[in-house]
């Protein structure tokens, strides 16, 4: 059964693939544990693009900037796809 949480994760993964838009990302497994920084080598500008796309998709209740500014630098470095998916799920 597909839950709303699964849909959010799937939508997030799709947004990540579309934003990075390079050959390797097509086959690269993206799971809840995938880290934006270490595993995807995401540029901060790309993270902003993903965040913007998520905002547009799920509406204004998602305060991505607030979500990020409440975190320590260690949390920021270790941020995973699952962390962001949970945050969206909580706000959606």
């Amino acid at each position: 059964m597909i839950t709303p949480d699964d849909q959010i994760l799937a939508s997030l993964v799709e947004t990540i693939r579309r934003t990075i838009n390079e050959d390797w990302i097509e086959d690269f497994p993206i799971t809840r544990e995938t880290r934006f920084h270490d595993d995807l080598e995401l540029e901060s500008i790309e993270f902003v693009k993903i965040a913007d796309a998520i905002q547009a998709r799920f509406g204004k209740t998602i305060d991505i900037a607030g979500f990020l500014s409440g975190r320590s630098i260690q949390d920021l470095i270790a941020l995973s796809v699952g962390d962001l998916a949970d945050f969206i799920a909580a706000g959606a």
Binding site: E22, D23, W24, E41, I45
Partner: peptide
């Protein structure tokens, strides 16, 4: 990012780049 924003460079993802890219 400064080089790219200034229009004088292209980005390449160091650990992920493939031969075709």
């Amino acid at each position: 990012r400064q080089v790219i924003d200034a229009g004088a460079g292209l980005f390449m993802r160091h650990g992920k780049v493939t031969v075709p890219t």
